[in-house]
């Protein structure tokens, strides 16, 4: 048995003129819960659709276990549970009938069908609505039906495309708990916009942008992997006169180690706030010298945590401008 559950090599997908994926490569070992992040149109859904066997790649390869999804799609798909984006379901069917249909097309042994349906429905909290039409269900229940159909055949790999989008906060917590629980025994890859979701459920984060991988780390390490820290700084002048924020930020930018300066709200009375970003070198000592030299006083200085949000924005936003 190979150690990796997913292996993607130079995956490229073109829709007409637009290139959704540009040679994406990554590997996911068995048992990992991976969060797939990226802005809209980054290629998250395309990657997941190729893995799930819905789309065929233009170039490159995708393996589930040791099965090439393009060469032996039926065998690859049998190993996967897939919750598509927007969770399409047969509205006119009863929950039980729907799951029974899934059991049939997923070739679950007829003797085991009812037991499997029962356990998937219990696990996803569907017992009370098993006899209702899917069209009548709330969004939260629909999502659970989608998850139940994905786990029904006990797949090795779960591919969940935005499993919590459009749910209320309570439902989100419930679905996350369910995913965490499933992650104990299965490999899970889930896509999301919600960064806190990745921090709470995933052991690894992949960020893609413009069809390429831009970051790959644990959620704890990722903020630092941008190679940056930040400092919140509020300055006043010793004389009490107002500081020219543009000139001051120019001076601050020239301090060794500082990689970026944003002017933020000060405390009034001619004071100015700055948000400084810095790289590997800690600029605080050098900053102090500069402040003294310019006859300023430091009213506040504070190191701030770079959040996953900041990293996400930096990795997926700034690249476009560059």
């Amino acid at each position: 048995m190979p150690s990796s559950m997913i292996r993607i090599e130079g995956l490229t997908k073109r829709y007409g003129m637009t290139e959704a994926l540009k040679g994406l490569s990554f590997e996911v070992p068995r048992g990992q819960v991976v969060g797939f992040l990226g802005p809209n149109g980054a290629g998250k859904s395309t990657t997941m659709r190729i893995l799930a066997g819905y789309l065929t790649p233009t170039a490159g390869k995708a393996f589930v276990g040791d099965v090439d999804v393009s060469a032996d799609p039926v065998r690859a798909r049998a190993m996967i549970g897939y919750l598509p984006e927007n969770n399409p379901l047969y509205e006119e069917m009863m929950v039980f009938d729907f799951l029974h249909f899934i059991a049939e097309v997923r070739k679950i042994d007829p003797a085991q069908r009812d037991a499997r349906i029962k356990s998937a429905a219990e696990r996803c909290g569907l017992k009370d609505v098993i006899g209702k039409d899917i069209g009548q269900l709330s969004k939260g229940y629909r999502q659970r039906v989608g998850l139940a159909q994905a786990i029904l055949h006990d797949p090795d790999l779960l591919i969940l495309d935005e499993p919590t989008s459009g749910l209320d906060p309570n439902q989100i917590v419930e679905i996350r708990e369910l995913i965490k629980d499933l992650g104990k025994e299965k490999t899970v890859i889930l896509s999301t916009h919600v960064l806190s979701e990745v921090q709470s459920t995933c052991s690894r984060v992949l960020i893609i942008n413009g069809g390429k991988l831009v970051a790959d780390d644990s959620p704890e390490n990722l903020p630092a992997s941008g190679g940056e820290g930040a400092i919140h700084l509020v300055l006043g002048s010793r004389s009490g006169a107002a500081i020219d924020s543009a000139a001051a930020s120019g001076v601050l930018k020239s301090v060794a180690g500082v990689t970026g300066v944003d002017v933020v709200e000060g405390e009034g009375h001619g004071t100015v706030g700055f948000k400084l970003r810095f790289g590997v070198e800690d600029p605080r000592r050098a900053l102090f010298e500069v402040v003294v030299k310019n006859d300023w006083v430091i009213l506040e200085v504070r190191r701030t945590q770079v959040s996953l949000e900041d990293t996400f924005r930096k990795l997926t936003g700034d690249k476009k401008a560059a």
Binding site: A52, G53, A78, I80, P84, P88, V105, K107
Partner: peptide, 14 residues
């Protein structure tokens, strides 16, 4: 139209 084709086409069938 409803998107259920994505379910159909990801079942382990031809």
């Amino acid at each position: 139209k409803s998107g259920t084709i994505e379910l159909l086409l990801t079942f382990p069938i031809e």
